[in-house]
Amino acid sequence: MSHVGSDVGVRGSKKQEETGVPGEKTPAEAWLADHLPSRIRPFVESEIRSRDIRDSVEDPGRALCAAFLVGLASRVDKVHLLQFDLKSRDLIQVVKKLGIENVEFHRGSGLSDEWIQSSLNIDTDLVKYLKGTGCLHGNQTVAIVIDSISNHILHRPTPYTCQTIHSLANKKNFDCDVKQVVCLLHGDLHDNQQLSLLEHTSTSVVRLTSPVSSHHNFSCSTLHKKATGKVIRITEEFTISEHFTVSNIQEVKKSTPKLSVMDEDNSVDPTANLTFNLSLTDKEKEARSNVVLPYTKQQEIDSQGNSPGEGKIFYQPDEADDFDEEDPDDDLDI
């Protein structure tokens, strides 16, 4: 598999914009259909309410999405997979191949109500739909995976989709405990404003990028907002193996530490290699501290009597100072 693109953001490009339906298979996607996913657990799960995986044509995120799906299936009682992309079918194959039983599929259409009559399409109110199917009940722990929400954003104002994700992740809306909502989003189909609104809504954003080193197949930069207010930004490279495990996770360090090393090399010690002496030995320092300097006397006076902040005025009147109570301006020549 070869990654040609250098970065995610080839936004607004490609044929997909016109139809709103993700188009033909890229070579990378075809590869992924065969070699699917695994698990990734970068953070403590209980804190995470909703999560965006953002991919692009060059760096497809469906494999990672499937990795989340498999990972979630092992941790919660039931995973609901809502499919709106044509390529979502691959996820069904993965689940079947691995023999995972607690995933429920909701096959939807990426088209709007006007074009297709289907119980689940992009005009469906997802909260109502999930309630209506009656599959969210009891004291189950549930996770919701949406593949993908790009069509929703293309067809409707972005805030509507943000509200949908927000209410899906809201515990009050369902009887059961929704642990996590994972959404796949094709980042190159949307403009910055739409992306920033979604980023604002979700608690963590995983953005797929092209890996730098050849040892890894995937690379992602993760932004995670903890409930405590701490924000984690990390770029990692990893491999998704045939047994659907994320392995070989390695953090990609930025090049800034290198720069500071260079700085240290440049900063020279000015006292080295001089023709005269600028440094003091301990003995010399002691001798210096014993020298009586002009202000030392003043310092002693200060330390003896007065408490800090107080002062005294010593004044001895001479003959000219005939101070008259009645007329204080006596000495002025008016």
Binding site: P157, P159, Q163, H166, L197
Partner: peptide, 13 residues
């Protein structure tokens, strides 16, 4: 003015 208020970053649909 967050998306939850239906505000689309200052623009209409």
């Amino acid at each position: 003015g967050s998306p939850q208020w239906g505000e689309n970053a200052g623009y209409t649909d």
